[in-house]
């Protein structure tokens, strides 16, 4: 399996430079927009827009391929399965015993696939272009308590480390003749005790050391924190925010206030 330490790719694009708060708000708004719209044509416009953003994000080819392979497969799966389970509407195209496939079913399946594509890709863009530190910095600035932000940052930071530890433990147990592939589901699940035991002990030890390390650097000595890098909205941030807001508000008002079928 392909694994990455972090999906973030260092680059200097306008997406990277954008304030993390603006990026998070934009991703939320675009996600909502994808959920609100139901016409295939408009969803395709949105998907195209998001794919253009993805290209502009200049993420590494391997990371993009990794993410998009997953998204495209998922989209295909939805497009194929949806019509099988949604027999409403006419005309009926195929009737095979209990399976009824209708034309509107197929269109709805395609629309759902595109919608999921929009949702997944837009979040990937956020992760591709925003470092974990910036994400947490944005959340804290938005009102998240600093300790929670720090805990979140540390958790994200230790994900890959913990993955490596788990791998080593599995290797160590395999070296003692343990075969994780053998036996039924319950037998296999029980075998993972031999992995989870050492994993939990090692995680607790790491947490303990980390707490000491934080304290020895005077963590929590002052009530009010100051920051080395203050987040500040720049003109370009406002432009981006207003653009995305407009992209969200105009179709939403058109759909609900003027019953435009989009």
């Amino acid at each position: 399996m392909t694994r990455f330490k972090d999906l973030y790719t260092e680059a200097d694009t306008f997406l990277h430079r954008l304030d993390p708060r603006v990026k998070m708000a934009s991703v939320l708004l675009l996600s909502l927009l994808a959920l609100i719209m139901s016409a295939l044509a408009y969803l395709l416009v949105l998907l195209t827009f998001i794919f253009v953003l993805l290209l502009l994000a200049r993420s590494s080819y391997r990371k993009t391929a990794f993410a998009m392979k997953f998204v495209l497969r998922f989209m295909a799966l939805i497009a194929i399965l949806w019509p099988l389970f949604d027999p409403s509407g006419t005309p009926v195209l195929i009737r095979l015993g209990p399976v009824v496939i209708t034309e509107p079913g197929i269109w709805r399946g395609l629309a759902s696939a595109v919608r999921v594509g929009c949702l997944a890709t837009v979040w990937y863009i956020l992760i591709f272009t925003t470092s974990q530190r910036d994400l947490v910095r944005g959340l804290v600035k938005l009102g998240l308590r600093f300790d929670f932000g720090l805990a979140l940052a540390i958790a994200l930071r230790y994900f890959p480390t913990f993955g490596t530890v788990m791998e080593s433990i599995i290797d160590a147990q395999r070296s003692r003749g343990m075969e994780f592939e053998k036996g039924n589901m319950f037998v296999r699940a029980r075998k993972y005790v031999a992995v989870l035991g050492p994993a939990i002990v090692s995680a607790l030890k790491t947490a303990d050391m980390l707490a000491l390390a934080l304290q020895s650097r005077a963590y929590g000595a002052r009530r009010n924190r100051t920051y080395l890098r203050e987040l500040k909205m720049r003109p370009s941030d406002y432009v981006a925010l207003v653009t995305v807001l407009a992209m969200f508000i105009v179709p939403t008002v058109a759909k609900y206030a003027f019953s435009v079928p989009i």
Partner: peptide, 16 residues
């Protein structure tokens, strides 16, 4: 593993 025994650097990775 019947022929070759491997002791990992960190004993805590195998004791449970």
């Amino acid at each position: 593993a019947r022929t070759v025994g491997y002791v990992f650097q960190n004993p805590d990775y195998q004791l449970f």
